[in-house]
Simulated assay, not measured.
Amino acid sequence: MGAAQTAPGEPGPAGSAGRQLPAATVSRLTIYLRALTGMLADGVERVSSEALAEAAGVGSSNVRKDLSYLGSYGTRGVGYEVAHLSRNIAQALGLTHEWRVAIVGAGNLGRALAGYAGFESRGFDVVALLDADQMLIGSEVGWLRISDVADLEAVLARTRANMVVLALPSAVVQAMCDRVVAAGVRSILSFAPVVLQVPDNVTLRKVDMATELQILAYHAQRDQERDIAEGLPGA
């Protein structure tokens, strides 16, 4: 088995013509969709590529290139219809499907994820929260009652969960990942700072906050070094 993890440069979801989208494009599409959702809430009907680029914090050339993968081309002087473009992006990202999420691990992180209201507004329904701690099992987080992870397979089947989030310690996450895969779930998000082994037909994403902070520290150091070289005040 290999770790089938999507990474920069690897293909993402298929576009409108069935092609695979570049991973960088997929990442930006999620940002465009968030910006468009805000525009819809504000009653904005049309948006230019320049205005969308500014709202998303990317270059306008990136916007035009990314949206061309979806067959969406703005009209010169008119721009894009916000509602139509929002639907196209949501469809390309697979957000028109029913995504039912089970969270394994009801520690601080798991409970915070279970209570995050943004999932539902973006098309993800958190249907289960599981843990091995007998002191937690049966207690409630929002409307969810924490289930015993010993009953994982039955809970996944009963809730029809098709995505699983692993908010678990490194020592136990691989064994739990194996159970999730054996139960038929093919989309997994892990917060454990370890490389998980999954079959090729399973999509695994990993969120490693320590790694992200290290990358942030690198860029902060580079900025500081540049400020010192340029003799900027406070450097």
Results as ranks from 00 to 15, higher is better:
176 M>P: 08
212 E>N: 11
185 V>G: 04
219 H>W: 07
161 A>D: 02
187 S>T: 13
158 R>I: 13
227 D>F: 13
171 A>P: 09
162 N>R: 08
190 S>M: 08
205 R>C: 12
155 V>E: 01
224 Q>C: 09
198 V>N: 04
162 N>W: 01
229 A>K: 08
224 Q>M: 15
202 V>D: 05
165 V>R: 01
222 R>A: 15
165 V>M: 05
202 V>H: 02
156 L>F: 10
230 E>F: 02
172 V>C: 11
169 P>T: 06
213 L>W: 14
163 M>C: 10
214 Q>W: 12
200 D>Q: 02
176 M>T: 08
177 C>Y: 01
171 A>R: 14
211 T>R: 15
182 A>F: 11
176 M>I: 05
202 V>P: 08
222 R>H: 12
188 I>Y: 00
195 V>C: 12
157 A>I: 08
228 I>M: 11
229 A>H: 02
205 R>M: 12
207 V>C: 10
167 A>W: 00
199 P>F: 09
220 A>K: 13
201 N>K: 10
169 P>L: 07
191 F>R: 12
198 V>D: 02
166 L>A: 05
214 Q>K: 12
183 A>V: 05
230 E>Q: 12
174 Q>A: 04
167 A>N: 06
161 A>P: 07
183 A>Q: 01
178 D>L: 09
194 V>G: 03
200 D>R: 04
160 R>N: 14
211 T>G: 15
207 V>A: 09
228 I>N: 13
164 V>Y: 00
194 V>C: 03
195 V>T: 10
196 L>N: 00
199 P>S: 13
231 G>Q: 01
227 D>P: 12
172 V>D: 04
189 L>P: 02
211 T>H: 14
173 V>R: 01
162 N>H: 10
216 L>W: 15
203 T>W: 04
186 R>K: 07
172 V>K: 00
203 T>R: 11
208 D>S: 03
180 V>T: 02
168 L>D: 00
166 L>T: 05
208 D>P: 06
218 Y>C: 13
167 A>G: 02
188 I>C: 02
179 R>Q: 01
216 L>N: 12
219 H>A: 07
218 Y>I: 15
183 A>P: 01
230 E>Y: 07
187 S>L: 15
176 M>N: 10
158 R>T: 09
219 H>K: 11
224 Q>G: 14
227 D>V: 04
173 V>L: 02
170 S>Y: 13
154 A>R: 00
229 A>S: 10
201 N>A: 10
187 S>W: 08
181 V>Y: 13
203 T>P: 03
193 P>T: 10
211 T>K: 14
204 L>Q: 01
227 D>S: 06
156 L>Q: 01
179 R>N: 08
172 V>Q: 01
221 Q>G: 13
167 A>F: 07
221 Q>P: 11
161 A>M: 07
196 L>M: 02
207 V>E: 08
166 L>M: 03
222 R>K: 09
181 V>F: 08
